[in-house]
Design a protein around this nucleic acid. Structure first.
Lengths: 339, 339
DNA sequence: CTGTTAGCGCATTCAC
DNA sequence: GTGAATGCGCTAACAG
C-alpha cells in the first residue's frame, strides 16, 4: 500500500479498477450485488492506491456516522473508565465507533460538549454520571438522536437510563454497619443537589437508621465533594465528636480512603475503633490497608447495558422499558469487622 | 429555540431571514463582511428555527474538521487522564475539538483506532504513551495530517514528540536511594521491550548503580507489568533474598504501592527496613501510608505542550525543533528516609 | 456587503 | 451485476 500523499477518492479507485464509482462504493460497503471477480479487482485497486474511505463524505451522503458520542463528566475518575470499557465492547460488537468527550465536571462544558457531538452528527449519545438538569434535557431535545443516561438518571426519570438503585445501595451499606452492632454511624455525603447519586445515598442512610430506630443526628453528616481530601476533612471533624462515631459510611470509595487514613493517623484503628464502608468499589479499594468494604456498582455492566439499549434505540426497535436498574453487591473486605 | 425535529439546514435559515445561504454561512463562520443588521436578522432566524450547523457537511466542504484525535492507550490509567487535561485546555484555546479514543493497550486496537480517526478526517493526531512500532508509523504515514507523540517517542526519534527523559528520571530516583546510603537496591521494572519507558528506566537504574560502583545483580531486577499486583509479586520475591534489598526502585507508582503494602504485610517497615521510590507521581502516591517519594512527570505539561506543538504543525508554522524533552522533578515524601 | 455557483467524496436511486 | 445521475449541507471562490 502506497502512501496517500494526495487524497485518493473513490473515483480514482474506480478508474484504476476499470469500474464505476458505484461499484467501488458497493464493495466498500459490503453490498453483495457485486461479482466476486469485480470485487477482487476493486480490492486490488484500493490496496494499490492506498485508498481510505472518507468518513465525513460518507456521513454526509448516508446521514449516518456509525459513531456514538460519550460524554464523560470527569476523565480522571476511574469509575468512568470502567463504564467506558463496557460501552466500548458493546459498541465494537455492533460496529459503532465511540468518541469520548471529557467535560471536567462543569455543567457548562457538558452542554457545550453535547452540542459539539450533536453537530458532528453522532448517531446516538451516552451521558455518563453527573447531574442531569433541565438545560441538559433541552440540549438533548434539539436533536432527534437517541440519548441514554448511564450511571445516573434525570429527575423525572423521563429519559432512557441505566443505573443502580443508589438509595438501596446506601441502605444496604449502612445495614452492614447496623448488623455489626454499630449505633453511632456518621456519613460523609456527596452534594445533596444531585438527586441521582448524592441525595439518594443520603436518603438510604437516613432510612436505614430510621428502620433500626437509631436517631439521625445532624452532626453525624458532612457534605464532601467525593475526593480524598474531603474524606480527610470530614473524618477529622467526626473524630472530635462526643460520642465519637464507631462507624462511617462514605458516599464513595475515595472519601472512604481519606477517612481510613485519617482514623489511623489519629491513632485509632480500622475497623476496631471506627469501621468504614462505602459505595463504588474502585480498584483502589483493594489497594488500601485495611482493604475497603464497599458496595460494588456493576460499572462495566452499566456501560454495556446502556450501549446495548442505545443500539436498540438507534435501530428504532420496540422497547418495553427504557429505564433499567442493575443490581449492586456488597463486597466484604476488612474495613468493617466481620460479624 | 424550537426543537429541530426535522433537520433545518442553512437554506431554511436563509429563507427565514430573507438572505442568501452564503450570508448565513458568513455569520455562522464569523466572517466580518456582514452588515450588523443583517447579522442580527440571521441570528434571529437561527434562533427561531433552532438551527445547528452540520459539522459533517462543513468538514466535507472545507476539508477541515477542527478536531484532533487523541489515542489513549489505556483509559483506566490515571496518568493519561492528566495528560488529556493538558491537551484539552490548549485545544480549547485554539478552538479545536478533541475526540478521545481508547485502545486498551492493544497494539492492534491502536492501529485500528488511528485509522478510524484518520477516516474521520481529523486535522491532527496525538498519540499518548505506549510503544510506537513500525506499524504505527506506517498507519500515520497513510495520511498527511501531523502527528505528535506525547509521553513517548519512536525508536528512531523521527516523529515529533513531547516526553521526559525517562532514563535520567530513573537515574535520579536511584541516586536518591544511593545518597541515602543504600547499596542493596532492587528494581521492579516494566517490560524491557518498550524503549521509551521500560528499557530507558532500567538503563537509568543500571547507570546509577554503576556510577556509584555498586554491582548490578540480576536477582535484584524483576519485570512487572506496571500494575499493583505485579508490585506485590516482585516484592515478595525480593523479601526472600539474601541479602535482602534495603531499597526498591519501582518503574511506576502503582507497582511501588504494591511494594509498600507487601513490605508492611511481611512485618517490615517503610522506609526503615525497606525504602521505596518510583516514577510518575499519580494522585494515589499521596494517598498511601507512608506517602510515596517519587519522580514526578509533568503530565499536564506533556499534554499541553504536545497539543501546542500540534497546532503549529497543523498550521504549517516553521519549527526549529519538534522533539521536546520536559524536565522531571523529585517529590520527597515519606517512603524514603530523609537524609 | 451580498448573492450565485461549484464542488467536497460518497451513498443511492434508477436504468440497463 | 453494473453504471449514470443526483444530492447530502455546507464553504469558497467569483461576481456584482
Amino acid at each position: 500500500m502506497e502512501r496517500a500523499a494526495v487524497t485518493v477518492t473513490i473515483y480514482d479507485v474506480a478508474r484504476e479498477a476499470g469500474v464505476s464509482m458505484a461499484t467501488v462504493s458497493r464493495v466498500v460497503n459490503n453490498n453483495p450485488n457485486v461479482k466476486p471477480q469485480t470485487r477482487k479487482k476493486v480490492f486490488e485497486a484500493i490496496e494499490r492506491l492506498g485508498y481510505r474511505p472518507n468518513a465525513v463524505a460518507r456521513g454526509l451522503a448516508s446521514k449516518k456516522t456509525t459513531t456514538v458520542g460519550v460524554v464523560i463528566p470527569d476523565i480522571s475518575n476511574s469509575i468512568f473508565a470502567e463504564v467506558a470499557r463496557g460501552i466500548e465492547d458493546i459498541a465494537n460488537m455492533y460496529h459503532y465507533n465511540i468518541i469520548l468527550c471529557n467535560a471536567d465536571k462543569k455543567k457548562e462544558k457538558e452542554i457545550r460538549v453535547i452540542n459539539t457531538l450533536l453537530e458532528k452528527q453522532v448517531d446516538g449519545l451516552l451521558f455518563m454520571g453527573g447531574v442531569v438538569t433541565e438545560d441538559h434535557i433541552q440540549a438533548f431535545r434539539t436533536s432527534s438522536v437517541p440519548v441514554v443516561l448511564c450511571g445516573t438518571k434525570d429527575e423525572h426519570q423521563a429519559m432512557p437510563s441505566v443505573d443502580i438503585d443508589h438509595e438501596k445501595a446506601a441502605f444496604d451499606a449502612v445495614n452492614v454497619l447496623i448488623a455489626g452492632g454499630h449505633r453511632h454511624i456518621a456519613m460523609i455525603s456527596g452534594t445533596l443537589q444531585d438527586p441521582a447519586n448524592g441525595f439518594a445515598r443520603y436518603q438510604g442512610y437516613r432510612k436505614a437508621l430510621e428502620a433500626a430506630g437509631i436517631p439521625v443526628r445532624d452532626e453525624y453528616v458532612r457534605i464532601g465533594n467525593y475526593r480524598y481530601e474531603s474524606g480527610i476533612e470530614s473524618t477529622k471533624y467526626f473524630l472530635e465528636l462526643d460520642p465519637r462515631p464507631t462507624a462511617i459510611f462514605s458516599a464513595n470509595d475515595e472519601m472512604a480512603i481519606g477517612a481510613i487514613h485519617t482514623i489511623q493517623d489519629s491513632g485509632f484503628k480500622v475497623p476496631e475503633d471506627v469501621a468504614v464502608i462505602s459505595v463504588d468499589n474502585i480498584r483502589m479499594a483493594s489497594m488500601v490497608r485495611p482493604t475497603l468494604t464497599t458496595v460494588a456498582q456493576p460499572m462495566y455492566d452499566i456501560g454495556a447495558v446502556s450501549m446495548r439499549l442505545l443500539t436498540k434505540l438507534m435501530n428504532k426497535e420496540a422497547m418495553d422499558y427504557t429505564q433499567v436498574t442493575l443490581p449492586h453487591e456488597i463486597i466484604y473486605r476488612h474495613s468493617v469487622a466481620q460479624s
